[in-house]
């Protein structure tokens, strides 16, 4: 009996030590895994910081250079050969005119197209083909739209290098983005809500008007605003269309020549005198504030109506 006891004791001892050995083995593994974990944690943090630091540096540099030029005169003066007399007025008004035409056009065309594709068109190969092409158009480089605008609006339709030609070109450029965003938003409307409407005898249009659009509107607006903020920052297509760089007036009508903020900035940067570089920095601050405001509105809209 005692022999048995010792035996079993030994056995237990053995077991304990072996399980400990196992334990120490696995704990070194855990340590190694933790090491990797820290390493990658640090790596990803670093990657994030690179972007943030560069951006912060850029912003700091621009604000430092441009801040003192942000005077009332800056918003009141037109372009001039003298830096002290130069201002952003023509560019600001040009951008406003352009957005004033582009915004309603893209909204109406984009939402109508999205409604047609989602709610009216039969889901056959043709509609799939159209949808595929619209998605592809959203990825076409902006300069290509510039060439199209130059050929179609400036030359063939004879609009010249006018506000209208520039705005129509911009409309074409951002339209695919608005269509894709609106379609996604419209497709997300629950089908049971539409069925409820139809089951009460509503027509298709009534259902779209009173159920689909209210539900989809925040998403549609968010997409439109983000697309327009892209339009405000675009330079290349408008240079193609022939927006002028030296403008000493605000547009009078749709057929006036015009400039926009990014083009004015681009032109100032190209000039040799240091003061013009500082003017460009001031212009960039204004442009950035406009863009950030638009993005903030888009985010607010999305959060406010999020379901």
């Amino acid at each position: 009996m005692s022999a048995e006891k010792t035996l079993s004791k030994e056995h237990t001892n053995q077991q304990t030590s072996s399980s400990l050995r196992n334990h120490s083995h696995s704990s070194s593994q855990v340590q190694r895994r933790r090491g990797w974990n820290y390493l990658f944690h640090a790596l990803f943090l670093l990657a994030t910081l690179v972007g943030i630091i560069v951006l912060a540096f850029l912003l700091f540099d621009i604000v430092k250079r441009g801040w003192s030029w942000l005077t009332p005169d800056f918003f009141e003066n037109f372009a001039s050969r003298l830096p002290s007399r130069s201002g952003f007025k023509a560019a600001i008004w040009g951008s406003l005119w352009m957005i004033g035409v582009t915004a309603p056009l893209t909204f109406i065309l984009g939402v109508s197209t999205a409604i047609y594709l989602e709610e009216y068109s039969k889901k056959n190969w043709l509609s799939r083909f159209i949808q595929l092409n619209i998605s592809n158009l959203a990825g076409v480089p902006s300069i290509v739209y510039g060439i199209l605008g130059l050929t179609l609006f400036v030359r063939i339709l004879g609009l010249g290098s006018s506000v209208l030609a520039g705005s129509l070109t911009m409309t074409l450029l951002v339209l695919p983005i608005v269509i894709v965003a609106s379609r996604e938003s419209i497709a997300s409307v629950p089908s049971i809500l539409k069925q409820a409407s139809y089951a009460m005898g509503a027509s298709r249009w009534q259902t779209i008007r009173h159920v689909v659009l209210p539900y989809a509107l925040p998403g549609v607006l968010t997409g439109t605003i983000l697309a327009l903020s892209r339009a405000i920052g675009e330079t290349a297509p408008l240079i193609m269309v022939g927006a002028v760089t030296f403008v000493a007036f605000t547009p009078e009508n749709l057929f006036s020549p015009f400039t926009v903020m990014p083009i004015q900035i681009y032109q100032w940067i190209g000039l040799p005198r240091i003061e013009f570089q500082q003017l460009a920095a001031a212009g960039i601050i204004v442009l950035l504030i406009v863009l950030l405001t638009m993005n903030a509105i888009a985010i607010l809209l999305r959060n406010k109506f999020q379901r």
């Binding site: 049971i192 809500l193 409820a196 409407s197 089951a199 009460m200 005898g201 209210p214 379901r307």
Partner: peptide
């Protein structure tokens, strides 16, 4: 027809 023949669905589906 649908005005005269109403329908109630399986899952409650009030409009938002």
């Amino acid at each position: 027809l649908r005005k005269n023949v109403g329908m109630v669905f399986q899952a409650p589906n009030p409009f938002p």
